[in-house]
Design a protein around this nucleic acid. Structure first.
Lengths: 259, 259
DNA sequence: TTTAACTGGACTACTTAACAGTCCAGTTGT
DNA sequence: ACAACTGGACTGTTAAGTAGTCCAGTTAAA
């Protein structure tokens, strides 16, 4: 989330060219569902000015993205630039390692969510505005219509969750939770392919909104707790390559590595 | 700790030369108390090889640091390289904004610590090795001797805390807590100047070790909770420019800024 | 239909960061 | 006295990024 750049002196400096940074930025925007299939990128000149780099640099980044098949320069013509492809030739964007996320175990991420997220949403329950709740209810309607489109559903899911998180007054913890949520995106996208997964999530969301409307922090906490545990179950099921469901440990768990 | 690079597209690319990165790395190492006054940096050639950059680049970074007065090239002679200065001409290194840390309010940081740190140390209590506990007890002895030297005490303090944090099996949360702790360092360094502050901390540490030896997670949690609250009190007192102590809110609190 | 404002493609000349290598004078510890 | 270091100071080279220009095609409004 919000790193003190406290890497030890013996660690190599990580240099990155501007091209790479731009490329990665766009990739992460796609991987997180903010940029979706068919979206147009701003023009090269526009990107250059908003990223504070020269146009050639933007060109380089975009051309590399095109080379990787991640964006498409619109067919034939030369106007406009790129259409985002979420998956290209079966290869999905983003790092998807089924048993670890950014070097942390899935269990560790889930344990962290269970601890922090329940606290954050409990606080959010106290501060959610009526407009926020209205937005959440509308979001549910949209989600219902997106039931058959995992990608679209995930985008709604993201907006739904973030609306709640950022209602908390502790922005530090909210940011942290958003990071945890974002880490899970790849896993969730796979899990969403399972039959019934979307409906289950939707059901959880409805339950959460009911608890929020009652402005009952404990109920909201409990609802999220269940929601997270269900997600954990699904993730594990995905890791196990389909079949069986393991029970949720809800405990800690991670490879140790003391200072 | 562990950033999802999810910056919006309209945000400028943050280019940084290798020189700047090396400079910042060293500065942060000083600001966090890992590098202290009088410490020697490795030789230019050594730094170059461990940072995977050319010697010229290291030279540039070090020379800039020397120019800023942050490190000193050893007097007269030309052997060895630099001595770290924690404060230069009264100006201390690192960002010290008394009412916010990295854009987060002090209250938010304390609330986060209260929530996550107590959980992490409770887990740590279950997994601390006997050698770890022995190290902690030795650390207490060193701390007693460092009572009159705030900087030295803080370094011991850091080692003490990190030893406990990383005994937890959830490395994600442990990393998070370490970040929170590190954020506080500047504030703590100021607070440590207050008479009795060091002794109070030391007393807390003794209490924590006792709880750890009993391997009682709840007791450890409670001990840390008190410790954190005391630190919060002291920080607030510092913010108020000396004088009175305010009671610890222990609540959330942060400027809101929804997505 | 004409026209003005866009788009991306392509190319130039220039600046700068970083690299790799060398040589030197002084300091250290054996 | 010696070998093994240190930082200082050069060199030439490579690659990234900048700033500018010109062009051909598209788009939408006049």
């Amino acid at each position: 989330m919000m790193p003190v750049p406290l890497s030890p002196l013996h660690e190599a400096i990580h240099k990155q060219t501007a091209k790479e940074m731009i490329r990665d930025k766009i990739v992460s925007l796609i991987a997180s569902g903010i940029l979706q299939v068919g979206d147009e990128l701003p023009s090269e000149r526009e990107l250059a000015s908003m990223l504070m780099v020269s146009r050639e640099t933007v060109r380089g980044a975009v051309q590399r993205l095109a080379g990787e098949g991640i964006v498409q320069v619109s067919q034939g013509a030369r106007t406009r630039i790129a259409n985002v492809n979420v998956d290209v030739g079966g290869q999905r964007i983003g790092v998807t390692n089924p048993t670890s996320i950014n070097g942390y175990s899935l269990d560790a991420v889930h344990a962290a969510r269970l601890l922090v997220e329940t606290a954050v949403v409990a606080d959010a329950a106290k501060h959610l505005s009526t407009e926020d709740i209205k937005r959440l209810e509308e979001s549910i309607l949209v989600q219902e219509q997106a039931c058959n489109d995992p990608v679209r559903f995930l985008i709604c899911d993201r907006e739904f969750h973030l609306t709640i998180y950022y209602a908390s007054e502790n922005r530090l913890l909210a940011d942290f939770v958003v990071d945890l949520y974002t880490y899970m995106l790849d896993h969730r996208r796979i899990a969403m392919g399972k039959p019934g997964a979307i409906e289950k999530s939707l059901e959880d969301h409805r339950f959460i909104v009911r608890a929020l409307k009652m402005r009952n922090p404990e109920a909201v906490s409990a609802a999220f707790s269940e929601h997270i545990l269900r997600i954990h179950d699904t993730s594990l099921a995905v890791d196990a390559d389909g079949a069986g469901f393991k029970p949720a440990p809800a405990s800690w768990g991670n490879e140790k590595e003391p200072a």
